[in-house]
Design a protein around this nucleic acid. Structure first.
Lengths: 240, 240
DNA sequence: TCGCGGCAAGCTGTATACAATGATGTTGAA
DNA sequence: TTCAACATCATTGTATACAGCTTGCCGCGA
């Protein structure tokens, strides 16, 4: 039962080169170390990771498919810069998919799984006390992913994975300055409802939680790339 | 507003080489010209399309992201061979996502959009009369994609696109021989409910329609790759 | 005859060289 | 001085060469 039996080149953690590099860039984007619209030049990345552009291109294409990077032909890759409209759509999709996830988990009564969720929630509480924002954000994503994994549907879990990642970018761009960071016992309350098998309550709490996250970003801006047209519009009296 | 203004190499239809090749292989898989598990050798494809392996690898990786192809490290690419469990999950995800799509479209009253759907349904009827099965399958997919496009959410529409493609593979593998092909006025009935703005009815009909499609495949088999682990498990008395 | 080990062929993995494209700055003429 | 055409440079796009992995074949020995 040795899954590492295939002897292709891997690092100590059993990751192939391209997976390792993907993970590194992915994490940097999610952690807001690489900001939206940052150019990702192939040569520079190749140098940084000590590989050729071939590998970097492969990784960038994967990230593009995951919507974290945008590749413009003949011009290169940048960290994605989702528009407010895209943000709206991502949150709407999260409502759709994660409500269903919660419904399914509530019906399953998987105690082992719920324990895992509680462990993550506990870590989150610690990070909150320690005021470690980066870790909180990381763990919050982990919670949603772990919850999705309990729903016994890899397809839906994959969707959640993508949506959670994209949410990171949206928060990076549109988080309102004084936002109260998501009180993380919302997660605990969801777990409680799941443990009680109260499907309707659990869904309700998840909905509320997602609305809460959404309330901490301002998607009312016309932004997502400055619109010079309207910014420098001649004062024709038409624009208020 | 000339979107074709960038002068990078494109064919007559404005497609870049890799997009053209992706489309060709994609179509071949969806149309069941390339069956599940068919090996996709890089050199052979490169020769067939008159390009180098570089392009082919890019295309294969994209198809792998779309779950239509499986790449095994050091062994190459094959057309994906979804398991019955995967099939179950894809249908479940379709229920989740497409129900929401229908809900949103029912609320929008987009007459132009509904006309487009009716046009597709009409074409389907023609194909049914002509007993052109390939075209029917193609158009059926078009219907679901077009419907998704009306929901004003590119994220959800993207999910539907992926799910519809994967459904093609599942049908290729598990369609029961004597299946009555989906009577395509189910599509028309959905459109009617949407036109009437009857949200609940439209969702109900979509659910019914998806169940109908699912009923035409047999996902009860243990197939999709034999599980040697359980098949040859030592008889420790634990397995019943 | 069977089993084991090494060799060879075929394929994928990666690096690199070269071609093509886009951005920028410069020159020259109106 | 302004604008356009051109030259240059940085960067991406594609092909190809070579290295490494996997697998099947063949021969050797028991």
């Amino acid at each position: 039962m040795n899954f590492a039996s295939d002897s292709s080149r891997r690092d100590k953690r059993g990751l192939r080169t391209d997976e390792r590099i993907h993970g590194a860039i992915y994490a940097a984007i999610i952690n807001h170390q690489l900001h939206p619209a940052t150019p990702l030049q192939e040569d520079a990345l190749a140098g940084a990771f000590g590989v050729s552009r071939t590998i970097i291109r492969k990784v960038l294409q994967r990230l593009a498919h995951e919507k974290l990077v945008v590749i413009t032909p003949n011009k290169g890759a940048r960290v994605a810069r989702p528009t407010t409209e895209e943000g709206r759509q991502v949150f709407e999709a999260r409502h759709t998919v994660e409500s269903e996830i919660v419904r399914k988990v509530a019906r399953r009564h998987d105690d082992r799984g719920l324990e895992r969720l509680r462990a993550i929630a506990a870590e989150e509480m610690k990070a909150q006390v320690a005021r470690d924002k980066r870790r909180r954000v990381q763990l919050s994503g982990d919670f949603h992913r772990a919850l999705a994994d309990l729903a016994d549907n890899a397809v839906l879990a994959g969707f959640v994975q993508e949506l959670v990642s994209r949410t990171s970018l949206i928060i990076a761009l549109y988080e309102v300055p004084g936002a109260v960071p998501c009180s993380c016992d919302e997660h605990s309350e969801i777990i409680d409802a799941l443990a009680a098998g109260d499907e309707a309550l659990a869904i309700d709490r998840m909905s509320h939680h997602l609305r809460h996250i959404e309330s901490q970003v301002d998607l009312s801006q016309t932004a997502g790339g400055v619109d010079f047209r309207s910014l420098f519009a001649p004062a024709t009296g038409e624009d208020g």
